[in-house]
């Protein structure tokens, strides 16, 4: 419990996490609001259109929670206070994942709520399991992406490098892979953020997994990355 309090104090006692949280909410809810004003037939899925952008901002927040500690040397003080490094890093991962998940839920329901408010006539009730997954599922994806971002931060240790990886992979690499003839389409479902998207938006015919299977796969990737990060941090000189 102590360790969670430590990481909570650390996360909320600097400004950048607050900026990131406000930024993520502003982007997602703001986009949904504009969309609702412009379109009478806005759908549940459309209100979640900016989910990936909000996710990027939250991943930046999550990885900075680690890389700034390396940048400013406070990771050494942390390991001095808690020589069992795995415990300290797991506490940080937990706090970051909880905050990321909360931001994801607020962003998703905030977007839906804003759209309902601005376009009361549109069909925006959560009537199917798919609708529920598309909205409430955001929090799960955000939380797991937060875990991945913490892991990448521990492995890379530098803000610029970690942020670049976390932006370039989902936004560019995963889409470019699809351009490879034949092979691209086969690989793409196994890329992390394609899987996360499949969970939220539903799977196509012939997909290798069900939506929940896709989330499970995304979770396994996050766990593997985190495991690697914990092993490396334990062995490395701080």
């Amino acid at each position: 419990m102590n360790l969670l309090a430590v990481e909570r104090i650390k996360l909320f006692s600097t400004r950048s996490p607050w900026f990131c949280m406000i930024g993520a909410l502003g982007l997602t809810v703001g986009f949904a609001s504009i969309l609702a004003i412009k379109s009478e037939h806005v759908s549940v899925g459309a209100t979640q259109g900016m989910y990936l952008l909000g996710l990027m901002v939250v991943m930046v927040m999550s990885t900075l929670a680690v890389t700034t500690e390396y940048r400013f040397g406070t990771i050494r003080t942390t390991f001095q206070a808690v020589p069992r490094r795995t415990g300290a890093l797991l506490a940080k991962t937990t706090v970051v994942a909880l905050v990321a998940g909360l931001v994801g839920e607020v962003a998703a329901f905030g977007s839906l709520g804003a759209a309902k408010l601005l376009q009361p006539g549109a069909a925006l009730s959560l009537s199917t399991a798919a609708d529920w997954r598309a909205v409430a599922g955001s929090g799960l994806v955000y939380a797991l992406a937060g875990v991945m971002a913490v892991a990448v931060g521990v492995l890379v240790r530098q803000s610029a490098g970690a942020v670049a990886i976390l932006l370039v992979v989902p936004l560019l690499v995963e889409n470019l892979v699809g351009l490879i003839p034949d092979l691209g389409a086969k690989i793409q479902p196994w890329l992390p953020f394609q899987a996360a998207g499949a969970f939220l938006r539903g799977t196509h015919e012939g997909a290798p997994y069900s939506p929940w299977g896709a989330l499970a796969y995304f979770a396994v990737l996050a766990a593997v990355l985190l495991g690697a990060a914990l092993v490396v941090a334990k062995k490395r000189d701080a």
Partner: peptide
Amino acid sequence: LDAKWVHPNR
């Protein structure tokens, strides 16, 4: 060990 091991915005 190093007085600069502090987050500057904290």
